[in-house]
Amino acid sequence: MKGARRPIGLAALLLVAVGVFAALGVWQVQRMHWKHALIARVDARVHAAPVALPADARLNADLEYLRVRVSGVYQGKATALVRAATDLGTGYWTMTPLRLDDGRTLWINRGFVPAGTTRTAASDATPEGHVAVVGLLRLTEPKGSVLQSNQPQADRWYSRDVSALATARGLGKVSPGFVDAQQETAAPVAASVKPVPGLTQIHFPDSHLSYALTWFAMAALSVFGLVFVWRRA
């Protein structure tokens, strides 16, 4: 009796699967180390002493969440409200441009105001005169949220797109990022609303270890399947 034919094709397929699954597992481990290093850097920035705002050319992803200190004069009439969901509920971020002492214009997220707040009320709550702000540097959020696009013509904003906001308010060139205010030093304002600062949400999904274990388990199962079909033949 002739011996059974070895399932060469199936064995080759399983061997390729072992290599692919193992490679994906290693990649997820590398991603996990990168993510942990990123979280450590951001945590250090958030709790560091504030520094001066870097030049516009340096405002990129490498500096996001850098704690900065800026000062200047608010342009309250240009205030915009951007939809927000926070631990305090749904409402708006109060975005107001700040004319910096060095001549640049930088959007400041002065904080959260509840749903129902009008732009006029938020504008009236803007301090006059010279102000100082300490906060976290953020990157612009172009076009809108995942679910809804910004509607500049209707003054409806779902993301903090600093360029589009500046165009809608006729501000000209602005810095390519914005600052989430944590502290604001200014003359007191008698207003019906007061933005609540310091609500920056910092969250980095970190599921790489579970993904890596899944891929390695798939690789192990493929090895088992390879051995099984080869020995059975």
Results as ranks from 00 to 15, higher is better:
I8G: 08
L13V: 13
A85H: 15
P195T: 07
D124K: 09
A212F: 05
A132Y: 07
F204V: 14
A186T: 10
A122E: 01
L15E: 01
A55F: 06
L98P: 10
P114K: 10
G116C: 05
T105P: 12
T105C: 01
L15N: 04
G3Y: 13
V26A: 11
P50Q: 08
V174E: 00
A115M: 13
P114R: 10
A17Q: 11
P7R: 14
S207L: 10
P176A: 03
P54A: 05
G135M: 09
Q201P: 01
R231Y: 02
A186L: 01
R6P: 10
A220P: 02
S145C: 13
S71Q: 10
A168G: 05
V179H: 02
V113H: 04
D87T: 14
D180V: 14
W93L: 05
I202H: 14
A12L: 12
A132R: 03
T90P: 10
P205A: 07
D206Q: 15
Q201I: 06
L10Y: 10
A23K: 06
A22Y: 12
A132W: 08
W230Q: 05
P127E: 02
V227N: 02
P54K: 01
N150K: 12
G89D: 12
K2W: 04
A22E: 07
A121W: 04
D102T: 04
M1E: 15
G19Y: 11
V68E: 08
S159H: 04
V227C: 05
R169C: 13
G111D: 10
G135H: 07
W34P: 11
W215P: 03
Q28E: 07
W27V: 09
S222D: 10
R160Y: 08
S210R: 15
D102L: 03
A166V: 05
L81Q: 13
V189Y: 06
P205T: 09
V51I: 04
A121I: 05
S207Y: 10
P142M: 00
R160A: 03
A23L: 04
G3H: 14
S149I: 14
D62P: 06
H36G: 08
F216M: 09
A80Q: 14
S175W: 00
D43R: 15
P127N: 08
G3I: 05
R5K: 13
D161M: 00
L66C: 13
A181Q: 07
A49T: 01
D56M: 07
L24A: 01
A49M: 07
V134A: 06
T79K: 06
N109T: 07
E141L: 01
M95K: 04
A40L: 13
T117C: 08
P152H: 11
R231W: 03
P176R: 09
M218L: 07
Q182E: 09
E64W: 07
K35H: 06
L13G: 15
E184P: 13
